[in-house]
Design a binder for these strands. Structure first.
Length: 949
RNA sequence: GCCGAAGUGGCGGAAUUGGUAGACGCGCUGGAUUCAAAAUCCAGUUCUUUCGGGAGUGCGGGUUCGAUUCCCGCCUUCGGUACCA
């Protein structure tokens, strides 16, 4: 019999490596095909069973493409910068570079164990200075460019400076964050600092003030992920929004192109919709409102200028620049209280807040159409970064405004009569305008246009497009990321490090604690941060999304030290033909990559306008997440409560803290709990909870406390939820154990057999036996009496039909990424060939090639036993012959009123009339008719018969 | 809240354009083999039933000769929500 799986796998892994079976180079004689996986972040937990789902699918597809004659680029690498490694360093003192290197090594081994056909000679990782040199370089190029709205592309900033010198900024139509206008002569009087500050507002990489999650107690900035229910996940301390000057990328400049070009790419409808909604283009109008007794004006954005006569108050975002200034003394206290309340909440919490909250600031604006005074409020439902951070509130025609007005007793004036449109909601832009002066009697769509004209005529605003998309915050107050290639001189003027001096190396340190006032740990490395007198470096680092925004290009030419990739390489490989990855990257990574790619395209450095032609989202393999409850009302000692003691899971009193599933007994079941051992492991893992008390029904547990309950009596129930398998949820399951037991081919096929690739499903090792048995049965076809033995005689038509049915189905299923059904098709074929005791070469030789992309090891082994010298993975993929599949008899289900009552065989070419005649004479059909009149007989050729009575 | 997706036996899932609901596999039941067990093989397995049938693809409606599939209204779960990647 065939050898042990582990021996076979070892043998062929070595062979593929020695023979460079999967290495590719530019080859103009073959069509190219680029298959890419979203590269993994190498977490300390190792690869989990969810990761390979997409990799297996893309590997099957790559192997299929290779066997059908393509030159396939199928690389792999690592997204190696990121927060978890830094958190780990803070906990353990182990340098992120060290832990990351170890983790990558582990991933590399795990990946190669899974039999993927990666060209490892092209491997890259984002924390490699040879790689991030070019990440930094692209950043400097973004800095050196601005975006022209007319040409819809990036241009060198020098061109803009020339325009300013000639005519100031009043006529330019370019993407910007510049508020004031200036003339050419004014420009000529500006000093360098002023000019640079102005240019900053036009660059594609620029600085401005943004908000971060600030935790005073920890002295650090936190990721949204590290904040739960308004407190820090680590330690449970309060978190507030704090203003900081940071780098941003002007992705909004590309909003229209990012939106329009979606039409040119083969992505799922849902993914495109997500991106479209994320960009969130809306056509509307900006309008300036005067403020009573003040020189200030407030700019609002609205898509419903037609309802302005119903604007009875205004709402500003609590962070709006004018709030402080416009708040009257008698309102100051309540406003400050309210602003503090809002600052304690994250944006998601603000949006999800069902309770209506707000505060009156004491000032009044003038409605420019009615000339009435309307009160100015602040409210959390208005976001600083959306639109202008201020709205005119029309409570009669907007749901949220209505709730707000009702709660605070504000005036409501009906301005849209919807009586002509029964069933229309406030969201529908229909109705006839009333109570609105010159707009009265107009239908809403015409009224919107009329209102826009009026606004422009009065010079109080203009029709504009607004986007939900915001510029990307590109600064992280962290150590483990790409350093910015940026220095500041004594005047604060920015200098980009030139290409010949790149990369700016990330300095070494053994102290990863944050700097003063939330600065990056790099600020503590003073000789690096201040390289010479009067010169300081940017000490923030780039986010993880930086390195992943262009890595797909680097794979084309990964070792180039002169350019990010050669023109020869990018012109041959063009762009990614098939990209496989999780839909959780739908907006961040996939939006930024498209943006960077378009920018490089503008510079003529890549030939394509879009980076990923076709994209397939693999679903997530879900895991079980286990939580315990932290009582937020008790500060010392920290107190955890068993899940069965928490009456209201939604209550604000408790914070859900995820626990590593390895610590939990009976995980995933209703009885999942921590015993004393589990609690000790939890404490060792989360030292900040060393002194915590754990309360459960039967008693309490606290480390080193003599009064502890012991043994089985410690029953700290955990809450189990199905959710994503992720390093941050501590619930990963390792594929190594599975492959060790069943073999890699079996693991690969089982993951595919679980269900459709794009669907999420919880992991369950039960069931893998079926695939294991199938592979055994398949191998047994080649053996008789323990000997490898094939019949050289010609196959019967029945055998050929079985084979070609499978070939046809498997091929079309691969093209459709329906791998679960292709595996069932092969199972069916094996079962049938087994019944026929078929061991003919004419059948089994194509069959082993058919299965090769799925089971690369076993098929390679059998391929040599069949006497072949070259790898099966460069053999030809079988094609089906339709002539073996024709049927002369077709079986029809016979239905009475749509319900199946029997099955009959008819000749393929029999006419509908003949069929219905025979059907009506059948005994059981006659019994159903039984005196009733036959209304119709429907014969669907080749499908079914339905008798309607 | 907003955006996207999913919901079919005990479980994972299958079902070209609207045409046999439950392919394939797990599990379970019974049998064969065995001193016994594992493994293997064979048969059965949506529920219900007065054994004629009846019901059934998250829930409630609708279109149709016929709906898992199309339309309207809900419910639940999952992903994203801009600093996890």
């Amino acid at each position: 019999m065939i050898g042990k799986y582990s021996d076979i796998e070892k043998k062929w892994k070595k062979y593929w490596q020695d023979q460079a079976t999967y290495k590719v180079d530019i080859d103009h004689d073959k069509p190219k095909y680029y298959v890419l996986d979203m590269f993994p972040y190498p977490s300390g937990a190792g690869l989990h069973v969810g990761h390979p789902l997409g990799y297996i699918a893309s590997d099957i597809f790559s192997r299929y493409k290779r066997m059908t004659g393509y030159n396939v680029l199928h690389p792999m690498g690592f997204d190696a910068f990121g927060l978890p490694a830094e958190e780990y360093a803070l906990q353990t003192g182990i340098h992120p570079a060290v832990s990351t290197k170890e983790n990558m090594q582990r991933y590399r081994e795990q990946l190669s164990n899974l039999g993927f056909s990666f060209d490892w000679s092209r491997e890259l990782y984002t924390c490699d200075p040879k790689y991030y040199k070019w990440t930094q370089w692209i950043f400097t190029e973004l800095y050196k460019h601005y975006f022209d709205n007319q040409t819809q592309r990036a241009h060198p900033i020098d061109e803009l400076i020339k325009i300013f010198e000639k005519e100031g900024n009043t006529k330019v139509d370019v993407a910007n964050t510049q508020d004031e206008s200036f003339s050419a002569s004014e420009w000529s009087t500006y000093d360098e600092v002023t000019r640079e500050a102005i240019l900053m507002n036009y660059r594609l990489a620029y600085r401005k003030v943004g908000y971060v999650n600030w935790c005073e107690e920890l002295g650090t900035v936190l990721a949204n992920d590290q904040v739960k229910d308004g407190i820090s996940e680590r330690g449970g301390h309060p978190v507030v929004q704090k203003a900081m000057t940071q780098w941003y990328l002007r992705i909004t400049a590309y909003a229209d192109r990012l939106l329009n070009d979606l039409e040119s790419i083969d992505w799922s409808h849902s993914l495109k919709t997500i991106q479209r909604n994320w960009i969130g283009k809306s056509e509307g109008c900006s309008i300036f409102f005067n403020v009573k007794d003040s020189d200030e004006t407030i700019e609002i954005f609205t898509t419903r200028a037609d309802t302005i006569f119903g604007a009875t108050y205004m709402v500003l975002a609590p962070e709006h620049d004018l709030v402080k200034q416009l708040t009257t003394d008698d309102q100051r206290e309540s406003v400050e209280q309210y602003v503090a309340y809002v600052k304690s909440k994250s944006e998601v919490e603000r949006m999800a807040e069902k309770e209506v909250t707000g505060a009156f600031i004491g000032a009044y604006a003038i409605n420019p159409f009615t000339n009435t005074e309307i009160p100015i409020w602040i409210g959390e439902y208005v976001l600083k970064d959306y639109g202008t951070g201020a709205i005119m509130a029309v409570p009669s025609d907007d749901d949220r405004d209505k709730l707000f007005a009702t709660k605070f007793g504000l005036e409501i004036i009906d301005v849209v009569d919807k009586s002509k449109y029964p069933g229309a909601t406030l969201k529908d832009k229909v109705g006839v305008i009333i109570n609105s002066g010159f707009l009265n009697g107009l239908e809403v769509p015409e009224a919107i246009i009329a209102a826009h004209h009026k606004v422009e005529e009065l010079k109080i605003g203009k029709a504009v497009s607004n986007y939900k998309l915001r510029d990307a915050n590109f600064s992280r107050q962290r150590y483990w990321g790409e350093p910015f290639p940026v220095t500041y001189d004594s005047k604060g003027i920015v200098n980009m490090v030139e290409q010949e001096h790149l990369p700016v190396m990330l300095p070494d340190t053994d102290d990863f604690k944050p700097g003063k006032g939330g600065q990056s740990p790099l600020s503590r490395i003073t000789d690096w941060a201040n390289p010479s007198v009067g010169i300081s470096r940017e000490t923030d680092t780039m986010p993880a999304v930086a390195g992943s925004s262009w890595y797909f290009l680097r794979y084309m030419d990964p070792h180039n030290d002169q350019e990010f990739a050669s023109q020869e390489a990018v012109n041959y490989w063009q762009s990614v033909d098939l990209y496989v990855g999780g839909s959780e990257h739908a907006v961040a990574h996939l939006m930024y990559s498209r943006f960077w790619h378009k920018f490089l395209h503008d510079k003529g450095l890549v030939p394509t306008n879009e980076p990923f032609k076709k994209l397939v989202n693999q679903g997530m393999i879900q895991g079980v997440i286990e939580f315990i409850f932290l009582d937020k009302t008790i500060d010392t000692p920290k107190t955890f409560v068993s899940a069965d003691l928490v009456e209201d899971l939604e209550s604000n009193r408790y914070a859900k803290i995820p626990v590593h599933v390895d610590f939990v007994t009976n995980y995933g079941s209703p009885n999942s709990h921590l015993n004393s051992e589990g609690i000790e492991k939890f404490i060792a893992w989360r030292p900040e909870y060393t002194d915590a008390v754990f309360k459960f029904k039967e008693g309490t547990y606290q480390k080193n406390n003599a009064e502890n309950s012991t043994g089985d009596k410690v029953n700290m129930l955990t809450l189990s939820e199905v959710g994503k398998m992720s390093k941050s949820k501590f619930n990963v399951i390792n594929p190594d154990e599975v492959t060790a037991k069943y073999g890699t081919d079996c693991f690969r096929m089982y993951e595919m057999f679980l269900g459709p690739i794009e669907q999420s499903k919880p992991w369950d090792t039960n069931g893998i036996d079926g695939v294991s048995k199938f592979l055994k049965k398949f191998i047994e076809l080649f053996y008789s009496n323990e000997e490898f033995n094939l019949d050289e005689s010609s196959a019967s038509s029945q055998e050929l039909k079985i084979l070609h049915t499978a070939i046809k189905k498997v091929r079309s299923d691969i093209e459709n990424f329906s791998f679960n059904t292709s595996i069932s098709a092969m199972m069916v074929a094996v079962n049938e060939l087994r019944k026929l005791k078929c061991n003919k070469r004419q059948i089994l030789d194509p069959f082993v090639r058919l299965i090769a992309p799925f089971a690369p090891f076993v098929s390679e082994e059998i391929w040599t036993l069949l006497g072949n010298k070259n790898s099966i993975h460069h053999a030809d993929y079988p094609a089906h012959d339709e002539s073996y599949l024709v049927e002369d008899q077709i079986s029809y289900p016979i239905c009475i009123n749509g319900k199946k009552r029997g099955i009959e065989e008819f000749a393929k070419n029999m006419s509908n009339d003949d069929i219905s005649k025979i059907v009506l004479e059948l005994d059981y059909v006659a019994k159903w008719i039984d005196g009733k009149t036959i209304k119709r007989v429907i014969v669907v050729p080749g499908r079914m018969v339905n008798v309607v009575i």
